[in-house]
Amino acid sequence: MNFRRLTALLASILGGILVVIVTFLAVYAWPAVRFNRLHFLTQNNWNLGNLYADPIMVRGQQVLPAAHYGILFLIAGTLLSTLVAIVLAVPIGVGAAVFLAEALPPVMRAWVSLFVELLAAIPSVVYGLWGYAVVIPFLGHHLFPWMVEHFGFIPFFGGHAGSGYGLLTCGLVLTLMIVPLITATVRDALVTQPAALREGAVALGASRFETLWSVLLPGVRRVLTGASILATGRALGETMAVLMISGNALNYLPNNIYSPISTMASFIVSQLDSALEDPTGMAVRSLAEVALVLCLISIAVNGIARVLLLYQDRQLTRAV
């Protein structure tokens, strides 16, 4: 087989893996999909049923009596924590990118940027450790009660300050994990903007910051959007850090920003042991359904981001 065909074949295996994963999960979760139907996505009730009773037939599937799987709280937890993270990460990311691109001399730029980007390299579980060990005590005992007292009038900012585990904590830690992606991309884009643009604005009397705000930043809008969507994708799939700091809510929606939540990714990990106790296997298959939903969401988000960034990619990957 000639070299080109061989590498094409091997590359196709890589391409095929994604297809295989989705297909397999779908096939495996199919009985659960049929059993759970649409209320999987709309109800807040994850219940393995009566583990000591005999299985019964419901809607064509063997399940334990009173078994019911609804993951609305997971969807809410995932989307809300990601939303908090993105809302915080975009301004902070752009701000830091501006600082790195404009306020630092080039010599320092590389090293300082590296220092900030390492935030993305720290493993999720180490974030969870840090969050669990030092951040949550701080938030739960000091910051959150202070916030409730002073900002409690804003909707969702009042009420019970919680223990430190919850939506806002997850949002904050997720922010730290995804900001470097935005900062790095925007910083690169700012640095490579043609000098002619800057010169044009400055020649008209604009200050450095005005140049930045009105001329350069609008130019990086597309890149910023793409990077933000990629960052969203990463936040959606974060597992270990969330598992350790979210409070692992079961079957209820958060009523303020300090409430515990669960995300789809963290739930899959936390529930495996219990799910294995269901002899009919429906619990495990429902977990697979959760994984399938998460996978599909992430494929959609990443697909959109890649298409948006494709233009930028093409510009830079042509070799000399």
Partner: peptide
């Protein structure tokens, strides 16, 4: 073929590792 594979590879990077883990668990 190449652009398709590249796209699939890029998307695969973004799939949460727990999903891949669960897939491996099942299979």
């Amino acid at each position: 073929l190449a652009p398709v594979i590249r796209f699939l590879a890029d998307v695969l990077v973004g799939v949460p590792s727990i999903v891949i883990g669960y897939f491996c668990y099942v299979t």
